[in-house]
């Protein structure tokens, strides 16, 4: 069934070219010496210098990274605990209710999640008589909330795959529940926890729509900052995009490199066994 028709290859190439054309145009014009987006007037690193000296962007990047790291860490801990509890829940109806509620932020359009959180925060602001509730804390709470379903979805299957007798054996051998968890359960769901954490980091860094509604002027993340930059034409956005593009490219290559390395190692390990 290995069919390599020239037509298929040509089609694939065409789609890839279309997918990358806007990005490539952007990369080329980020080195332009003038503001034009249609004529190259000369090579220059002017826009990159502007970007580097733009303290607002650097600050927004720093904000994004802090929120991503904190929200991913907290949602991973909360999510792991939740998974252990959900897995042990005996009532099926309660279990499916909890799962459905947890998945709401994943199913709902981002804009609805955003405005519903905004309503909650402004309402609590009215009760607490504080006018500037929006900022770091509201952003952190919101990011934890929309990360949770993804974390839980990546841990729960691992927990289901685990041999249930393993933790019972640990109890029989005299482990306390806490010790059994850290010595037996945690190692076997480790991969799920790590992938959930990484997923949460990417979701958090990438999110614009939800953050846009719950952020104040005191704590803007990078996507929210980019949004305000794209109102007018500005070549520094080109320089920023190019930087982001290459950063992601390097990360993806590194990830593939380490993945194939560990895969090789595991194959080798199986062979020696």
């Amino acid at each position: 069934m290995k069919k390599k028709t020239p037509l298929g290859i040509a089609y694939t190439a065409l789609i890839l070219i279309l997918l990358y054309a806007p990005i490539i145009v952007m990369i080329i014009f980020s080195f332009n010496s003038s503001r034009s987006t249609s004529v190259m007037t000369g090579f220059s690193l002017k826009w990159y210098r502007d970007l580097l000296y733009d303290s607002e962007i650097i600050k927004a990047l720093y904000h994004s990274l802090i929120i991503a790291f904190l929200s991913a860490s907290i949602s991973t801990v909360l999510g792991t605990m939740a998974c252990v509890g959900i897995e042990r829940m005996t009532k099926k109806s309660a279990k499916s209710l909890l799962m459905n509620v947890t998945n709401i932020p994943m199913m709902n359009p981002d804009i609805v999640t955003g405005i519903s959180m905004l309503l909650l925060f402004t309402f609590s602001g009215l009760i607490l008589k504080k006018s500037d509730v929006l900022g770091f804390w509201t952003l952190l709470i919101t990011h934890i909330t929309f990360n949770l379903p993804y974390v839980i979805l990546s841990i729960l299957p691992k927990l289901r795959q685990m041999d249930a007798y393993l933790s019972e054996a640990a109890y029989d051998l005299g482990c306390t529940p806490a010790k059994a968890f850290f010595k037996v359960v945690l190692p076997s769901i480790k991969t799920g926890i790590i992938s959930g954490f990484l997923m949460a980091i990417t979701l958090s860094i990438d999110d614009f729509v939800i953050s846009y509604f719950v952020t104040g002027s005191s704590w803007q993340t990078l996507p929210v900052k980019i949004y305000s930059m794209t109102k007018r034409f500005d070549p520094t956005v080109y320089a920023l995009s190019t930087t982001v593009f290459f950063a992601i490219l390097i990360l993806l290559i590194l990830k593939n490199f380490f993945q194939s390395k560990s895969e090789k190692r595991s194959i080798r390990g199986e062979k020696t066994e």
Partner: peptide, 23 residues
Amino acid sequence: LPMWMSLLLRTYSIMALISDTGI
């Protein structure tokens, strides 16, 4: 790779491509 780039930046690249004075 393009999916991981911010949606805002990708939309911006289209905007520059098809604008009245675009390429």
